[in-house]
Simulated scan of single mutants.
Amino acid sequence: MLHWQHMNKQVEADRQGRFWAIRQRVKDVVLRPVGWFLLACRAVWRYLGKLGLALRNLLAWFIWKPLFFLTLPLWLPLTWLWELLRPFMPKLWRFAGRVGLAERRLLALAARPFRWLLRQLAKGAAWLWGILKRAGLRIASIIWQVTAPARARLRKRYGSMARVYLARVRVFLLRPNPPRTAVFAPKAPVTAQPSPKAVTRLALVTAIAVLLFATAFILSRQTQAEAVVTAVTPEKIVVILTPTPRPEEPPAPDPQIDVKLTPWATPDPLATGGTLAFTLHQDGNSDIYIMPVGQREPVQLTSHTAPDIQPAWSPDGQSLAF
């Protein structure tokens, strides 16, 4: 018995030993890489923290502190002023609140007449709306009562038409097919008989057209009648004459002037020598040129980018205007 107990304890110890060995191997295979990964993440996180701290110090030294010292003359007097006014701020705040309350009361007093006027306008609008509403309902009821017979006729007419259509549809759907040996009678020709209303309307339209044609014919004959109209009265005779058109006189002929053309102006300005001034358009620009009599090449006087045109000599011949 003791031998079996000892063997059972030994088997149990061997089993526990194998279990702890498998657990240690799982730790070595699975948990050790996880630990290494956590250590790497911790190292990276620490590095990022140091990098952020260094960046913060750089920003503080190169941005924040220069701005601090540069704006010192602006905000330092404001802080001094705040320190001076700080004990009086509650009193100033209470004073501002009282001023605002007084303004509110003044505005309420000033707006009271406008509020009364708006209230009266609203009452008048409501009263007028009530009158218009009652009148509209009354008119609508009168129109409804007056049009009751017409509506009844229309209801009867369209109701009967709807019943006829429904009956036709029912017959079309429920009618049995005729036998194949059935013989159908030919359809009799239907002659359209004009209704009395159509005849009356046609006669009325024809009479109106004849009357209009006769009126137009009479008016045209009156315009083509003679120009003299006599009106005879028991006391005197009145004669109305229309003016006759005057005969058109032929236009007077224009006087003919013989013009003798010569190749040069008379007298010739260049007969006794001199200098000719003219405008020459060259290379996209117009400039003033002069050419003495007897010389073959002109001399350019102006070279401005603007167009220089219409040259004219002065009376003494010493200056040129353009």
Rank of each mutant, 00 (worst) to 15 (best):
L70M: 07
T272W: 04
K27T: 15
W64T: 13
M7E: 05
W80M: 07
Q10C: 07
R115E: 10
K123H: 10
P178C: 08
A203W: 09
L85R: 08
A111Y: 03
A43E: 10
A271L: 14
R153L: 09
P298R: 01
C41M: 14
V34E: 15
P149V: 11
E12G: 11
D308L: 01
F19V: 15
V164F: 09
L58W: 02
A271E: 13
Q256L: 15
W20M: 14
L92T: 08
L92V: 04
V293Q: 08
G100M: 01
A214H: 02
F69T: 04
L301A: 03
W129M: 03
I257Y: 11
L137F: 10
Y289Q: 01
L55Y: 07
A225M: 14
S195R: 07
A108D: 09
T191D: 10
P292N: 12
L72I: 10
T266Y: 12
Q224E: 14
V293W: 01
V169H: 12
Q282C: 07
I142T: 14
D316I: 04
K260F: 05
W45E: 03
I63W: 00
L301R: 00
P263E: 04
V190Q: 12
D28E: 15
I208M: 07
V190W: 13
E226F: 07
R246F: 00
P307V: 02
L101A: 14
L121F: 07
A60C: 12
W75R: 02
R23S: 02
A13H: 03
P263Y: 02
P267H: 04
P269V: 07
L280H: 12
R175T: 15
R153V: 14
L202R: 10
R221E: 14
R112L: 13
E226N: 12
E235S: 10
E12W: 05
N285I: 01
H6Y: 08
W116M: 03
L106G: 01
A306E: 06
P189T: 15
W264G: 03
V169Q: 11
W116N: 04
A43K: 09
A203I: 04
G284Q: 04
K123L: 15
V30S: 12
W82Q: 11
I309W: 12
S141V: 05
